Amino acid sequence: MTALATTAGLDGRPGAPGSPGTDPASDRRLRRGALLARAGFLVPALVIAVALLWALFPGLFTGQSPTETVAPALQAPSAEHWFGTDATGRDLYARVVYGASQSIVGALVAVLVGLVVGTAIGLAAGSLGGAVDEVLMRVVDVLLAIPALLLSLSVVILLGFGTTSAAIAVGVTSIAVFARLARSRVVSVRVTDFVEAAYGSGGTFFGVLWRHILPNSLTPVIALAALQFGSAILQISTLGFLGYGAPPPTPEWGLLIAEGRNYVATAWWLTVLPGLIVVFVVLATNRLSQALRGGDAA
């Protein structure tokens, strides 16, 4: 009986004493890993949700005005003013909350511009091939050769200053990235068996393109859009910091950091707290992008 029990325990069947699936330490590690993976997704999702709510419903999170003086200037963070006050006595927390509508909505517009235009270019190049592919990809190469900040500054100067112009400019800089990825996915999907079967069943070029090629090419593009969302927030904040975004006194995250840079030694919260908000939101979007790519599917 002892020999039979030992043999049963070593054969790896579920429930056997020696089976890895019944090792308490291994089970605890698996459960701990699952909890960490869940927390690693929920925490950034919560950060993004709060930022979106700030952008859409700022009045629910603060009763202070973002443009009116409400207290003495340069007050440190306190229970009454969570982020302190700026150089003119405006509540910094209220300005950060209301500034989300400029930065977040601007980033969404930028990603939408890059996603739609870039995916259309990549879809046309990958599906048509030949001379069309060559011409479109050479245009994309030119866009990739220009530094993103220089290109966005050029577009802003052409369109004029403002959040909308900055968002479009940032979107233009991301067109090439979306186009390259979409084209590579379309090229790989269009030679698959189910696409050939769709053509063999009498499907038209545009019908197969819309029903089969495009849906099966979008997953990595959507993941890239999540990643580009964080990058767009950084770029729009950079343009705002340089003075090409929303004009004062309109609150915008990059502009808030720029307004506090002269007070770093005496009022650190003017730059540190808005900067931390930008960092947290960008890191959260990067984390969600990794999850969309399937790296943390467990």
Rank of each mutant, 00 (worst) to 15 (best):
H81W: 02
G84T: 00
W253I: 05
S217F: 06
P72M: 01
A284E: 06
A232I: 05
S78D: 07
R95G: 03
G202M: 02
A226W: 01
G9W: 05
L234G: 12
L42K: 02
V117D: 10
L144P: 00
G126A: 07
D141R: 04
A5T: 12
L60M: 11
T204Y: 00
V96H: 01
S217H: 03
L153H: 05
W82R: 08
L218P: 10
R38N: 09
Q235F: 10
P274N: 06
Q64I: 00
A265V: 11
F205L: 12
I257R: 04
G160P: 08
G15S: 09
A51P: 06
T7H: 11
V50Y: 00
G15C: 08
A124L: 15
D193W: 00
V177D: 09
V47P: 08
T285M: 14
A94N: 07
T164G: 11
A87L: 09
T164R: 12
Q64L: 07
A166C: 07
Q75T: 10
T119E: 04
V279M: 14
T85C: 01
L288D: 06
F206C: 08
A5L: 15
V70M: 07
R32I: 12
L158R: 02
A120M: 14
L149F: 07
A5R: 15
A131T: 06
L214F: 11
A55G: 10
P17V: 10
R261H: 12
G129P: 04
L52N: 02
Q235V: 10
A148F: 00
A34R: 15
R13H: 10
P44E: 05
N286F: 14
D23P: 03
A148R: 13
S174I: 01
S101C: 02
L214V: 14
A267E: 05
F241T: 02
